[in-house]
């Protein structure tokens, strides 16, 4: 056996909602810390892949392991950013309150966040550039700021492996750059960052490795090797409205090596 277990490993993962299959036989191993993109069309099961890894949807078949162990054994090493639309932003909490939630798992039952947690939360807010809105109610933020609040909460989890579900959906280009700078910082610290993402052009630009998903794993590996015209055709086949975007993405990628 090798000394270091893979950071994240999907083995034969199959997921169904009721009788409708969403993911079939996904085998995917990520050995090294990197920025890893999960790419695919709408309804391809990208988010489901993350939720299956986190135990939020039941596996019909297969296993997922983190650092060579089941999630329950290494949960404190795994951070999560859900899709922004999954929560009610009118909820009566401040930005600081939400970021502190990232420290709750470490605190355990009934213990309240103290000075250490508040200091950490402030640092995390600083990293995403939101220190000045810490006391604001979360509904009073822009979409991009809300997305960064979720990112700061994940940072407060101090995890080794991060799973992010569409952290760049519906945010402007400047916020995208900011978020990616933070994610690149995590990679530089030796953490694995797995990002569900839908925009092929930025995917080609930003991720070290990608997986193309369309209910099954089409291809996975270094970005340049995976985002080939053939693979993209196989992933997006029958989705004519995307052909334009595809050709543009591929053309752009070949211009910038």
């Amino acid at each position: 056996m090798t000394a270091a277990a893979p950071l994240l490993e999907f083995h034969d993962v199959t997921v169904a909602y009721g009788r409708r299959p969403v993911l079939w036989n996904v085998d995917l191993t990520i050995d090294e810390p990197c920025l890893f993109g999960v790419i695919g069309p709408n309804g391809a099961g990208k988010s489901t892949l993350l939720k299956a890894a986190l135990g939020l949807v039941p596996l019909m078949d297969g296993t997922v392991s983190f650092l060579g162990r089941p999630l329950a054994a290494v949960r404190s090493q795994v951070g999560y950013v859900p899709q922004r639309e999954t929560v009610d932003w009118d909820f009566p909490v401040s930005v600081m309150d939400v970021v502190l939630m990232g420290t709750y798992a470490r605190l355990g039952w009934f213990r309240r966040p103290g000075v250490r947690e508040r200091t950490l939360a402030r640092e995390c807010l600083d990293r995403v550039g939101l220190a000045d809105v810490a006391d604001r109610q979360i509904g009073k933020l822009s979409g991009g700021q809300q997305q960064r609040v979720f990112l700061a909460r994940a940072l407060a989890q101090e995890a080794r492996i991060y799973l992010l579900d569409e952290p760049l959906a519906g945010v402007d280009a400047r916020t995208q750059e900011r978020i990616f700078a933070v994610l690149a910082g995590l990679r530089a610290e030796g953490r694995l960052v797995v990002v569900v993402h839908h925009d092929l052009r930025t995917a080609a630009e930003w991720f070290d490795r990608v997986a193309l998903v369309d209910m099954r794993l089409v291809a996975a590996g270094p970005t340049a090797a995976v985002l080939t015209p053939d693979n993209l055709q196989a992933t997006y086949a029958g989705r004519a409205e995307l052909l334009d975007e595809l050709s543009r993405a591929v053309a752009e990628r070949s211009r910038t090596p």
Binding site: L54, D88, Y104
Partner: peptide, 21 residues
């Protein structure tokens, strides 16, 4: 006693479940 836990689960049940609650 459990206001912290109740608030977390009410605000973001997916995040709560993913972090082991």
């Amino acid at each position: 006693l459990g206001l912290k836990e109740a608030t977390l689960v009410a605000f973001d049940p997916d995040f709560a479940a993913a972090s082991g609650w």
